[in-house]
Design a protein around this nucleic acid. Structure first.
Lengths: 108, 108
DNA sequence: TCCTATACCTCGAGTTTCTATGTATTCAGC
DNA sequence: GCTGAATACATAGAAACTCGAGGTATAGGA
């Protein structure tokens, strides 16, 4: 059983939140939808990452009741989080371009 | 000190070898060159990966003397390795496209 | 002679992700 | 009313990966 490569978790979470506040479970569903089934993030991966982002001040959280009455914990990008997203997205593009360069992908 | 993301090591090594046999040290130098300085793979990363690829039958190795007389251990893609490269390169493209989709990158 | 580059390698630490598990609520179907 | 699936949060331990540090050795230039 090979490990799934999900190492850009922080970037992905920040990217999701840049389109609006979300709660954990929603991120997992939304991530799978936007990636067309490629990303299936596990809860055991997401929640520790969210708590880490919160501790680092890149997101903050607030509780809000769902229409059903259930409590949801929404996460929101802070200004610091927006800056981090910008930086990490650039890093990602550089990384992806470098992999393509090594693989000899031609864009001509 | 943040860890550098180097998790697609196997793919990168297979990609390098698809352009010709190489020895370990050469791969590190070549990887840095092709990626324009983005990838600085450490020896502590590369050698265990090479040995793993060999164990899995994706590469095989042979010794050959350099013009200086020093011994070098060259690695060569096996047929199985070429197939693995094809698969992993596809996985990579799918992965990269999925990240871009989540980040909302537009190619229009 | 000494330092840098070349060339191979391993071990232990640190980080990340997964699996497994736990708790609790809501809703659809029976 | 009961049951199972989906929703929603969370943590602990295992597994995987990479890095830093160290070891060995040769070649070449200052």
């Amino acid at each position: 059983m090979k490990k799934q490569n999900m190492e850009h978790t922080r970037l992905l979470v920040l990217g999701l939140l840049s389109s609006g506040d979300m709660y954990g479970y929603q991120m997992i569903v939304e991530l799978e939808r936007r990636s067309d089934g490629t990303f299936a993030m596990k809860e055991g991966t997401l929640y520790p990452v969210l708590h880490g982002l919160e501790k680092d001040g890149l997101v903050d959280a607030y509780e809000q009741a769902a229409p059903t009455g259930r409590m949801r914990k929404y996460y929101r990008l802070t200004r610091k989080g927006k800056e981090a997203l910008k930086t990490e997205a650039q890093d990602w593009r550089r990384y992806a371009a470098a992999v393509d360069a090594v693989l000899g992908v031609s864009f001509a």
